[in-house]
Every structure is written in C-alpha cells, then in structure tokens.
Amino acid sequence: MIQKVYDWLDERLDLSPIWRDIADHEVPEHVNPAHHFSAFVYCFGGLTFFTVVIQILSGMFLAMFYAPDIVNAFNSVKYLQTEVSFGYIVRGMHHWGASVVIVMLFLHTLRVFFTGAYKAPREMNWVVGVLLFAVILGLGFTGYLLPWDNKAYFATKVGLQIAEVVPVLGPYVKHFLAGGDIVGAETITRFFAIHVFFLPAILLLLLGVHFILIRRQGIAGPL
C-alpha cells in the first residue's frame, strides 16, 4: 500500500533522486569517529544544527505562553517558569541551548579554520557560515531582552548605546531597533518580531544554502 502510494508520487514528482542523494552519499573514513576517535571534531557542525533544532522547538512552545509587552512579558515568563507543567524545563532548554549553540558554533568554526576546510572551492560556504554566526549572535542579543527583568533591560540599553556609536548609520540602527528614543514598549515588540520571525527566516535560508553547498561540493578531503 505504502509502496503503491510512493510509486504513484514518484511517477509524477521524481522523488527518488532527492532522497537518494541525501541517503546514499558516502561518508569518508577521516570524518567518521567510529574509525578514528579524534574525528569527533567533525561532529561539532552537526551538533550545532541539532541544538538549533532544540532552540526552534523549545522556542515554539515558549511562544505559546509569552506575551511581548512591557506589562505582561515578565509575568508571563514567571508564570511559565513557576506554574506551567514542565515550563521550567522548556525555558531551561531555550536558555541553556542559546549558550550551547554559541559554544558548538565556535568549536565548529575553529575546526573548519584549523583544518583549512574553507579553501578553494569552498570559499562561499565559509562566507555563508560567517553570516550564520552573525545571525545567531543577533538571535542571542534580541532574545536576551525578552524576559524583561533588570538584567535583560540594562544589557539591551548598553547594547543599543554601543550600536549608536557606529558612524553615520549608528543613530538610524539604534532607532530602528529601539523603535524610539528609549528602550520601552516599542523595543520589546520589535525585538520579539526580529527574534521570532526575521532572524529565524534568514537562519533557515542560510542553513539550507550551507547544506546544499556541502552536498554540491562534498566535504574537504583528509589533511
């Protein structure tokens, strides 16, 4: 039955080449920790992606309880943390996952750098990776404000003061992010939108390009 459904779809959509390309490609020995334990350094990229998936899933559940405005933001986070079943676990996953993503990303970047894997023909995938790094730092910065306690508020205030220092563009960037002259009601809605819609959209797009380029170019050979 399933075979028939698949055959029907495959006849029309030519599905096989798509998944066969992902499933059947060879993984070489030098990146396989089962053969050389030191090859675990090649796992950091995959673990970064794994943690990003944790962030997306836990973030989706946090968004079911979070209210992005200055009156309710803190109370909704507190309610989630203290009252909702398993709320503190989901929030804990998102909170600690944010740090783990940065750690894994940093390790992955160092692995790529020190193995010289960015050299021709893989220059563009390095550039995409650096952009991904910037997007993830942006997610960290915008997400930090959302619990709306003093730690969040004053860190964001300082961050925006630093952004203002940028010549020419600075005041515009600050005004765009803060939505006004102070960190307040408009800031939290903007940060929420950037954190939940804008940056994740860019993140998924860049991740797609990152993975397609890996399949197109293959991974770098042994040192």
Partner: peptide
C-alpha cells in the same frame, strides 16, 4: 540548573 529570572520586572 533552572534558567535564571530576577524577582521583579525591569525597572528603568
């Protein structure tokens, strides 16, 4: 390690 949250909302 529960995620930290201060006892009161932000006070500008």
């Amino acid at each position: 390690h529960p995620a930290p949250l201060e006892a009161t909302p932000a006070d500008p």
